[in-house]
Amino acid sequence: MAEMTLRPMSPGDADRVLAIYQLGLDGGDASFEVTAPTWAAFDASRLAAHRFVAVTDGLVLGWVAVTPTSSRPVYAGVVEHSVYVDPAAQGRGVGRLLLDALITSTEAAGIWTIQSGIFPENTASLALHRRAGFRAIGVRERIGRHHDRWRDVVLLERRSPTVG
């Protein structure tokens, strides 16, 4: 296997990023969303400074990005993240590489909390996040309907030990 590298996400990655996103959505345990957004919508909703892709031989294997949790100044240091890995590349350290880069990037920018909501059935993602220093702060029970059934979401956060 070729060496995996990490780099900032660019518009040239759009097709592959959205394809990986859709593969995750198709799996049924990644998000309440069922269809990946357009690149314009994706680009407009995520902070440009904190988007990364993991690449091997020029092929994007996964991505991570953040959205602000609020426009209120008091929450300027809190973001919500998404991390998606191509199913064919899972189990190879892609997700951890992406989360580590995100943590470094957000801390350098003064962000003190990264949060995410994960379906309890997504045990691989929950384990990845725990290994990266995230903790479960609660379960939002029956918070939304997805494919005609109510779903719980585990709310996770990582508080920076150096920012704040």
Rank of each mutant, 00 (worst) to 15 (best):
D15G: 15
G58W: 02
A19M: 08
L155P: 05
G117H: 05
E3R: 08
T123Q: 12
Y75D: 12
V74Y: 07
S10P: 00
V34Y: 13
L99S: 12
V79A: 13
A2G: 15
D13V: 02
T38D: 15
A108F: 08
R72M: 13
R145V: 15
L59A: 11
D43R: 10
W112S: 09
L155G: 07
I103E: 10
H50M: 05
R151C: 10
D86R: 03
V34L: 14
G62I: 00
G12V: 06
G138S: 14
P11G: 05
F134I: 02
L102T: 00
T113F: 08
R92K: 12
R135H: 15
L61A: 10
A101E: 06
F32K: 13
E141M: 11
D86I: 07
S31Y: 00
V153I: 07
P8G: 09
A2D: 14
Q115R: 14
H129F: 06
T113A: 04
V55S: 00
D152W: 03
W150R: 09
S116C: 01
V60W: 00
G24D: 04
H129S: 11
W150I: 09
R159I: 14
D57K: 01
R46Y: 07
A14F: 09
T113Q: 10
A44C: 11
G95H: 04
E80D: 07
W150H: 12
S116M: 01
E80L: 02
E3V: 05
L6G: 02
A19I: 10
T106P: 00
R72N: 08
A109G: 10
P37Q: 05
I137Y: 06
I20G: 02
D29E: 07
S70H: 13
S10M: 13
A19P: 11
G164K: 12
Y21R: 05
G58Y: 02
A49P: 00
I111W: 00
G164P: 13
T123S: 11
L23Y: 04
A101D: 03
P37C: 08
I143M: 11
S71C: 15
V83A: 02
V154M: 04
L99H: 08
